[in-house]
Structure formats: C-alpha cells, structure tokens
Design a protein around this nucleic acid. Structure first.
Length: 518
RNA sequence: GGCCCGUUCGUCUAGGGGUUAGGACGCAUCCCUUUCACGGAUGAAACACGGGUUCGAUUCCCGUACGGGCUACCA
C-alpha cells in the first residue's frame, strides 16, 4: 500500500478549506496556508472553500472577515465556495451561524451516546484549584484527563440524580471529549508520515463551551464532515491536537471518512527565534493589505500598499516550505498548480527572507510591459503633481526599470525625467566645474543643437566624434547638469527621451546657474 | 517541566548509502557598460554532535544537543 498517496479514493472530489478565525488581519502565514490549500485544490480539480471560524465571540474583531476576503482576492487565491465567494451549497459557512442549526449540539450528543464525551460542571475556580493541586503535587502533566476527571464534577462522577438536578437547574456545563487511557492513536500525515501518540498524554478537550458554542476541536470536525472535506491542510500548531481529533472521528464511527491530514511547517522570524510576529519582519510587512485594528488602534502596512505585486508575493510564499522539484524559482500561478504536491513540502520551519522577497518583486517588475508599468506609475506621479502623457511615462519606465525593485522606485530614481532638477550633486559640481569644462559644455550644447533626428544613436556618434577630435568629454558632469545626480541609466537615452529642446534647456539653465567668467 | 515536530552554505532549498553535496537570495572579485543598474563569469560559504548498522554514512537506526510548536470553556 502506498501510504503517501494523497488520494485514498480517486472517485471522491477533492475538497479543501481555509478556515481562519476573524480575530485580526490575516497575516502572511495564513495567506500561505490558504495558498497551499488553493494550489492543492486546483491541482486536483477540486473545491477550495472559505469557512469562517468565529466561535470565540470574545476575540471577534470587526472588519477581519472582510479583510480576509479582500486579501484572498488580491492574492488571486480565491475560494470557489464559502463566505464571500458564493455561499453555497453548504451554507452557512460561518460557524456562529451554523451553531444556530444545532448541528454541533447534535454531534456532541452523538459523542455522549457513543460514550466518547461527557458533561462537566466545573467552575473556573474549581479548574484553577485542580491545576494548583496538581502543580503542588508535582504531577508531570497537569491536565483534565483520564485520571483527574474522576475528582471533578461531571457526568462521570456525579450520581444520576445529582447530574439530572444540575442539568434541570440550568447550571452551566461544557461537554468534554472522554479521551481513553493508554491507547495508541496513530494517523498518517501527508507531510510528516506516521505519527503515533499515547492517548494518556492527551487531555479531555472541551468540545462544547458553556455558551453553547463549539470549540475549534468540535466545530472543524463537524463542518469538515458536513462539507465533505477530503484534506485538511493547516499549520503545524495543530499537530499536537490532531490525535484528539482522530479520537473524535473514532467515537463518531467515521474514522474511515476522516480527511487526510497535512501539517504545514511554520514561517519563522528572519532573525532571532520563534514564529513570525507582527514585530519582526525586518522592515517588510506582515500583512498582505494594510490592516488597522480598531480595538487596539494599531495599524500595519500591507504588501499591496508597499508596492509588491501579488504574483511576486505568492511566489515568495509558495517557496517558503515548498519547492517545485526543479530549480525554477519564478513560477506563475498556473505553473505552481501544475507542479504542486504536498509531498514536496518541507518539514522544518522556514525563516522569512526579506531580501529575497524584494528580489522576487524585482523579477516580476522587470517582466512587466512598459505601458503596464506606466499605468502603475501614474497615480504616483499624480501624488507628486506631475502630469505626463502615457507614452512618455512608458519610455521612462522602460529606461528605469532595470534598477527598480518597486514601481515607486521608478519615480524615486527617475524624478528628473519628469521635472528639471532643482538641486545638483554638490561634490561633482565643485570638483568638475571650471572655465574649461564650461567651455566644453557650451561646445557640446552647440553640437547637440545640430543633431537630427535627436535619438540615442545619433547623439552617441556625435559625442564620440567630438571626444575624438576635441578631447575627452566629462560625461558625469553633463549627467549631473541634466539630471542633478551623478549616476543613472544611459545618458544618451536620457537625452533622447527628454528631447532636444529639454536637453538644451537644462544645459542652458545650468550654464547660467554655475557660470564663471574667469 | 510534559507531549509532539524538526535539524544540508548566513537565508530559502535540491539531493540521497559511494556526488567535485547542486540551485537561488545575500556577499566578494572580474567582464560588459563613458556612471548606477541589468546581464555574464568566478569565488568564499553547509550535511549539529556521539554511538551503532555497513566494505562504506551527510543519507538508515538509537541517543545527545539545539531549534520550533502545543500544553485555555483561543483558534
């Protein structure tokens, strides 16, 4: 048997889900999880579903859901089913709304009937006391489990009468998973292989909270069953609770319908230790789009607003923990889909690399057509009160793009293509401007005047000839007079694009400004 | 602490019982270029450690170390 086969039933349509909770802006780790789900679904002609796991009302953040939807759209990894993406055929896709259908309660009761779950009436204080007692007794793993549950107030320890009385009185209760003692729980993870855990190390997880909401542990299982999910692709942080989930499927008698599991490695901080956090992305954003948390008042800048292309962003993300099996690094979404496989996902966590992220953007920028770039540059020009026609802007983009990582840099490096310089590199002027150079500039001005047509080739030849006949030309000085700065793209191309009149105009201005008489 | 997962250049990674351990980012040098950049070439740079198994281990097994995750009526 090929246990690594990701499709245990080829007749079953692949259905995967991305199931974030709306507790804040979706960060890049979440985007990568969504991306891998998307790629896997597309690869197998399956469905990709967005489900919102909003079972914790205390952590609900307004705007987070819309943010998630907008972010997925910007990244081009759109679900074909779920909240904001069709809402059919398994609606609702928000767990808070699904709760109203009593679906979770139904499953919880099924578990109780099967002897896999029980009611627990312990108060917060009682739980706290238990933990303290266990700690004082130096119990190795203090938790609500097969041993300690017998000292707590639950349907396993209470007499039938006491239990019924409590239930009738409306006393708050939770439903807990009754994890068996000393059994081997094993499951196959597509990325990690077989994982075996002794059930005694797992605690009796709360499945249904006292407010009637399910916890993640119950909710995702119920929804995955109901929504016919075939593969659960999620972050590594879920690995420790996976055995409890497997046990839940067992109690439900649905072990053979359990989705296949794949736990993705985490994205780590670029330097230092630990999971990627909002604080430490070395100058690059944490979020795909600008995110403002109304609750904390904190704002975070997004990749979109920082000038990243979505293709570059997801390309970078895809290669954090996955490789296509060849040495290709620049991959279109279609190529990623074609090449994607969970077996090629790395096991170890990957440190985020800001430098390489910029490199990806540069690669995509260089592939863009000049008119496409010009259109992207236009709003930036507008911000700076520059008006230029699209053809002209396109020419500038073509000239400047080799140097830029971001569209914005085309403006930053090439301002002088849109307006004459108002400052000049002082060092260059001081060092190079004198009677002789002034004379040469004057001569070159006359030379340029007579070039027709005024294109890069002609200018190049003319200057070449001049330099052969009359001595070496100080190109750096001319560049500085024309652009204000001492380096940049090919000077003759700058002249061509600026046009003859503007080139002459700028030389004249500079001559007047720096003119010396003796 | 306990449980689980992991460990190939600084970083992302390929590979896998016998390889000059490959690529990419970054770095350095050179070439191209009247400058910068782009491009090209070259270079420095890695199998965590200790035991096994084996003719041979970076690759398989076991330990150790280190890193990470989890340890809530959060997801």
């Amino acid at each position: 048997m090929n246990t690594s086969d990701t499709m245990n039933d080829t007749s079953k349509k692949v259905r995967v889900r991305f199931a974030p909770s709306p507790t804040g802006g979706l960060h890049m780790g979440g985007v990568r999880t969504a991306l891998f789900n998307y790629l896997f679904a597309k690869k197998h002609n399956g469905d990709f579903i967005l489900r919102i796991e909003d079972t914790d009302q205390t952590r609900y953040v307004k705007g987070a859901e819309d943010y998630i939807i907008e972010a997925l759209k910007w990244c081009g990894i759109e679900p074909n089913e779920g909240v904001g993406f069709g809402d059919a055929p398994y609606a609702p896709y928000r767990q808070s709304e699904r709760k109203n259908t009593s679906i979770y309660l139904k499953y919880a009761q099924k578990l109780i009937e099967a002897g896999g779950a029980y009611y627990a009436f312990d108060t917060e204080e009682e739980l706290e006391d238990m933990r303290k007692r266990l700690e004082a007794a130096k119990v190795v793993s203090p938790q609500y489990n097969h041993i300690t549950r017998m000292n707590m107030r639950n349907s396993l320890t209470l007499s039938h009468d006491e239990f019924q009385k409590l239930l009738d009185s409306g006393a708050p209760y939770v439903i807990r998973l009754k994890v068996p003692r000393n059994e081997e729980i094993r499951f196959y993870d597509i990325i990690r292989g077989w994982i075996v855990v002794n059930s005694s190390t797992i605690d009796d997880k709360v499945l249904l909270k006292s407010d009637g909401m399910p916890t993640y542990h119950l909710a995702h299982i119920v929804d995955d069953i109901e929504m016919k999910i075939t593969h659960v692709i999620r972050g590594e942080e879920w690995l420790p609770s996976a055995p409890a989930h497997v046990q839940t499927y067992k109690y439900l008698g649905l072990e053979n319908q359990m989705p296949q599991l794949a736990h993705l490695p985490l994205i780590l901080k670029p330097d230092g230790k630990g999971k990627l956090s909002k604080r430490d992305t070395s100058g690059l954003p944490m979020f795909p789009l600008n995110w403002h948390d109304e609750r904390t008042g904190e704002s975070y800048i997004g990749y979109r607003e920082s000038g990243f292309f979505p293709e570059a962003f997801i390309n970078m993300l895809a290669l954090l923990g996955w490789n296509p099996g060849n040495n290709q690094e620049i991959l279109s979404k279609e190529e990623m889909i074609q090449l994607f496989s969970l077996e090629k996902v790395h096991k170890a966590g990957a440190k985020f690399d800001p430098e390489k992220t910029k490199w990806f953007n540069q690669q995509y920028l260089r592939k863009k057509d000049k008119y496409e770039l010009a259109k992207l540059l236009e709003p930036i020009l507008k911000e700076n009160n520059i008006s230029a026609d699209l053809d002209y802007t396109a020419k500038v983009c073509e000239l400047m793009k080799e140097k830029a990582h971001f569209v914005r840099e085309i403006w930053e490096f090439g301002k002088y293509m849109f307006a004459e310089p108002n400052t000049y590199d002082e060092k260059i002027i001081q060092k190079k401007w004198n009677i002789e150079s002034q004379k040469q500039i004057l001569e070159i001005k006359t030379l340029l005047q007579n070039i027709e047509p005024f294109d890069a080739d002609n200018i190049h030849h003319a200057l070449d000839n001049f330099s052969k006949e009359k001595g070496k030309i100080d190109y750096q000085l001319i560049r500085t007079l024309l652009t204000g700065v001492s380096s940049g793209p090919s000077l003759v191309h700058i002249m061509e694009i600026l046009s003859k009149s503007e080139t002459l105009n700028r030389l004249e201005k500079a001559l007047q400004k720096f003119s010396v008489t003796h």
